[in-house]
């Protein structure tokens, strides 16, 4: 017993003795990270910066904010290619796709192919084409973090609240993100024993989805017996979340969301979400592996968090008279 403990103690001492050197090694170099953002810095970037600082990395950030305008992106990419930072951080599916391209449609003249890229938050890395399908080799310079809980966990989260049988979804059929999401929901409907009621948003004459159709679609879903409206990774629905949630409340149907924004800054009743800060911190650990440990992005896995937050927006629940069960109150965060 003593010998084993002694050995363990010795091993412990050695590791501790090595630590200061490692820390010195980390801080001895300053890294340059270029950030491409959609609407300024969010809690994700705060978590990213905080984590890297805590890991002992000295970083100079070059922040490029698109201010929700994709037209600005090509010039930013050209500058990045010229100045060659150590790593590029991209925000969201749209920016990441335009920065590195789909896995099977990479264009070296447009896309960044020889600088490591870490993305966050991307709803469905595989569905959007950023991540190669299973079996295909990983991308050499791309890794990142998804902020969406696995679909089964989301369905179970709804079921922790009440017995879900029919799930409604209003979605933009012209958005690939959203279409992929609906396909995944369809695939899990039978195995998880629920019925998926779909309501694609019709297009206006100029080919854009029509927000004015949302109340009618929700009322229609209510008539078909939907018990819950699902808000997935869909930029159009995200932008029109208030119309959707209000229509739902009028029809007596609550919204469920997998992203933090829709419940913190919207009227969804329940959400199973990643905390943005935690998403940023996980992305930072991937950046550290690439910058300090010298790992290729191809061996750093694209991941989602292990733990998610269950959030209940109480005013909506009270208004709909859909009261949260007692056991949920042990772990859910209640927004009052």
């Amino acid at each position: 017993m003593n010998r084993r403990r002694l050995l363990r103690t010795l091993a412990g001492c050695t590791a501790t003795a090595l630590l200061p050197h490692a820390a010195v090694a980390m801080t001895s170099r300053r890294f340059r990270i270029a950030m491409i953002l959609w609407r300024g810095e969010t809690a994700i970037e705060w978590g990213f910066r905080q984590q890297l600082a805590e890991l002992g990395l000295a970083v100079d950030y070059e922040v490029h904010d698109l201010a929700q305008d994709f037209a600005r992106l090509p010039s930013i990419l050209a500058e990045i290619k010229r100045t060659r930072p150590d790593l590029v951080y991209t925000w969201g599916t749209g920016i990441t796709l335009q920065t590195v391209g789909s896995w099977n449609a990479v264009d070296p003249s447009r896309h960044i192919v020889d600088i490591p890229v870490v993305f966050a938050p991307v709803g469905s890395p595989q569905g959007s084409g950023l991540q190669p399908p299973p079996g295909a080799p990983p991308r050499p310079n791309v890794t990142g973090v998804s902020h969406i809980a696995p679909l089964s966990a989301q369905i179970n989260a709804m079921r922790a609240y009440f017995k879900l049988q029919r799930l409604g979804i209003v979605y933009n059929p012209s958005e690939e993100n959203s279409v992929v999401n609906v396909e995944q929901l369809r695939a899990s409907a039978a195995p998880m024993a629920f019925e998926l009621l779909e309501a694609p948003v019709p297009m206006t004459a100029d080919g854009a989805p029509d927000p004015a159709a949302i109340p009618r679609l929700v009322a229609d879903l209510a008539r078909r017996g939907a018990q819950m409206l699902y808000i997935g990774p869909d930029n159009f629905i995200g932008a029109n979340r208030t119309i959707l949630a209000d229509s739902g409340i009028r029809a007596g149907i609550p919204c469920f969301t997998a992203t933090e924004l829709e419940i913190r800054d919207g009227q969804a009743m329940i959400g199973l979400v990643s905390r943005y800060e935690a998403v940023g911190r996980l992305a930072a650990t991937k950046a550290k592996r690439i910058l300090v440990d010298g790992d290729s992005p191809s061996v750093v896995p694209i991941e989602t968090l292990k733990h998610f937050s269950y959030i209940i927006r109480l005013p909506v629940a009270l208004k709909l008279k859909l009261y949260p069960p007692l056991p949920l109150l042990d772990y859910a965060e209640v927004i009052r």
Partner: peptide, 9 residues
């Protein structure tokens, strides 16, 4: 939280 006692689930 405002849940009526007769509605406790």
């Amino acid at each position: 939280l405002g849940i009526p006692i007769e509605q406790l689930i």
